[in-house]
Design a protein around this nucleic acid. Structure first.
Lengths: 221, 221
DNA sequence: CCATTGTATATTGGATCCAATATTTCTATC
DNA sequence: GATAGAAATATTGGATCCAATATACAATGG
């Protein structure tokens, strides 16, 4: 007897589903900073009990995406200007290193994919999608570094500030500058110039951070 | 009426207590790699139910300290040589930067404390304490960087590999080399030479990583 | 009318119970 | 004695219930 290979994917637990959904909603900015997250309410939304919800919230708290207080509940975490600044500084350090490690491993398909995202970013008219395409562009290159631990850290760092970044990209048209910088990074990768790609990535992240901090300072004043 | 101020510290939840205790046990190597962690058994040890235990295990899994499988349970996570190597490489990058940022902020008290840990490390005869003192020495300096996010990342990175490092320090007398390197780092800090302190820290971490990887390759062969 | 106190409600953390499934042990058969 | 199948056991994930406490609001007294 011959059976077709079936992708029996282990059904994710309810806690995993809730975690993924809430993480996505927070990272993409669908849940506003300071918004209350009631266990009961979330449990009803997912047709489950509060137990898996609590587990999901506990994980989110570990990653700094929410804060919880006993008898009061969870709220989407807000970051101070200083915290945002620090995370950008950190990202610049790590992502510059990741791209430096990635460049020697970039193959044709990876570069083609990155070029695709780069162009898609420039042509996309729906500003809500810029953040997502931006992520894909960078990650498509970073993946070649073959450093899963670095990438996990980069992901959690980006998670913390992505919703601010998306708002800034949309509201200030910082997207035009990002587009030019992406093209420069991609060109350096195509030339196999790891040092240049690294420096450009560092500056790209720091620039984005500076723009965002300026934007937020203005907005919060 | 005059009352003395009382430090009513918020009692930690059971989940927090279990999490801290298990984390400590894993990081310090009291729980061996691959060891089974049964929810029921842990719950009994802490005189609580499985609910807070599950929450603690879920958090530990997020940090990569354990892996869980449905109907099978949790086991203390083991790391491959490649994973250990990557974490040391990452630590070298981040800790070198942290110390560079810390040096300009080092004040007299901090340096005195670091010197104290440095000497304590050299004089301690109980090898089980070397890992702890090593941590304290580095952290006492790192704290001056005033980068809480960096430090949180450093902590989770060190958590992953600390038990291997402690075993290696103890079994191969790599402690002597560590002692010399600590003294050099401390001297650079006293001289306010941020660049040198950074390079020495980088080399210190990479050296430790190389020694450990060599040790583990031998041990696992 | 305002401040204070008591009560009702909302909400979390934890305990106990139930369902699902992996593993182990036992039994019957060859 | 070895092996296949069935039953028992172990173990997790989730649902429901209970205890503790913060908040909101009404009642009361000045």
């Amino acid at each position: 007897m011959k059976l077709a290979a079936v992708d029996i994917r282990q059904a994710a637990s309810a806690a995993d589903i809730v975690y993924d959904a809430l993480r996505k909603a927070i990272v993409e900015g669908d849940l506003a900073e300071g918004e209350n997250l009631r266990q009961d309410q979330i449990a009803q939304m997912f047709n489950t009990s509060r137990i898996p919800v609590r587990e999901a919230l506990s994980r989110l708290e570990q990653h700094g995406l929410i804060t919880t207080e006993r008898y009061k509940g969870a709220v989407v975490a807000g970051l101070s200007i200083e915290e945002i600044d620090e995370i950008f500084e950190f990202r610049a350090l790590v992502e510059a290193e990741v791209i430096r490690l990635a460049v020697p491993n970039l193959d044709h398909d990876t570069l083609a994919a990155a070029r695709g995202y780069c162009e898609e970013f420039g042509q996309e008219t729906d500003s809500a999608r810029w953040g997502e395409i931006n992520r894909r562009f960078h990650y498509s290159l970073y993946a070649a570094s073959q450093r899963p631990y670095y990438l996990q850290i980069v992901r959690t760092s980006l998670d913390r500030i992505d919703r601010y970044l998306r708002a800034q990209l949309t509201l200030t048209n910082g997207m035009m500058r990002a587009k030019r910088e992406h093209e420069a990074i991609l060109a350096a990768c195509l030339n196999r110039d790891a040092g240049l790609a690294s420096r450009l990535t560092r500056d790209h992240v720091l620039d984005a951070g500076r723009s965002l901090v300026a934007f937020l300072k203005d907005q919060r004043a």
